[in-house]
Design a protein around this nucleic acid. Sequence first.
DNA 1: CTAGATTCAAGTCATGGTGTCTCGAAATCG
DNA 2: CGATTTCGAGACACCATGACTTGAATCTAG
Lengths: 190, 190
Amino acid sequence: MVAPPKSPGRPRSEDARLAILQAVDGMLVEEGYAAMTMKGIAERAGVGRQTVYRWWSSKAEILLEACTHDAIDELTVPAAESAAAEVAAFLGALAAFLTGSDAGLAYRALLGEAQHDEAVAKLLREADILGGAAARTIRRVQSHGALAGEGDLRGLVAELVGPLAFRVLAGDAAGIEGELEGMAERFLAR
Amino acid sequence: MVAPPKSPGRPRSEDARLAILQAVDGMLVEEGYAAMTMKGIAERAGVGRQTVYRWWSSKAEILLEACTHDAIDELTVPAAESAAAEVAAFLGALAAFLTGSDAGLAYRALLGEAQHDEAVAKLLREADILGGAAARTIRRVQSHGALAGEGDLRGLVAELVGPLAFRVLAGDAAGIEGELEGMAERFLAR
DNA sequence: CTAGATTCAAGTCATGGTGTCTCGAAATCG
DNA sequence: CGATTTCGAGACACCATGACTTGAATCTAG
């Protein structure tokens, strides 16, 4: 995964990279998105400004890198007995991710930015964070033979993720936990 | 709806108000969200900067006012014969709104901003643009007796709007029109 | 070990947006 | 008329941006 350094010159500092990612993560949580500036990131990371600009061209790119790994972890659920339990577990993980996790906060910030920045939209489409995780759960459920009908994968992902994601994005997620099982059942019965 | 002017002093200029709303609309479409600045809005509207700040405290507030009226129009569908046709018509209007309309572009920009700005989130929650429109369609379908099961209104709205909205927000809306009827059927059969 | 290449932290700089303030003119009230 | 409020226009200090410079550090190739 990590290419051995071939080119001459001083190699990229892993310390600086991690300090920047951590600074972005911390600033987003502690100070909010508005207070997150490239200048502030560099200062908080104890890093030159150019060092930030050399490797990322925008806040969004850093945020995406900071978000991706955690997101995959947080959205991966262990195999369950029944398909219903597995879907419900995924929805629980998704709700926790979107409403409570640092990575989820970053994801929502990115999705927000993508609504008025095509470059961010492209990045997010390529990373496909939610879609990838949902697709893994859907394929497992399909292999249990528990999902009726055809339906292309992208449509299925939208039906699984959409209702929950929309409520969170619209700021209407209070008490959503009690509805996850019902959502899982409805998805499987579609 | 419009309070008659009671206080002394020069009344608020309706011309200025409309010029500002129109400037915001045009700038969002023609130049994009990033190029939309309070300064630019004032200049494009031919209006003093203070005149903008006096009545709105952020881009988001102006955008919301510019969006709300059009949104209600665009998301209101005529009564149809069957419940399925009515739901499908609403989803068609919603898809057109989210992907093609100026007001929908503004709505998406606002929803995006809301992900990292609690003040915008509050505004959007109070305006409840999508939720209100969806609730009207749902109530009509319920009065036809065509919607099984209980389910609170907010949950129903999320199930109706969520899958489509998520696909659009995630930038995966290509060829969505062909799936609207299936989505409508699935919603009614839940 | 040297020469060349690349990165590092730190800082400077012009540009442009922010939000507040001031100004004189205009409009509406009592 | 006088008080009050809005109007357009612009000045102002402040801050983020992103390109640029500097001198040191760290790597490869020869």
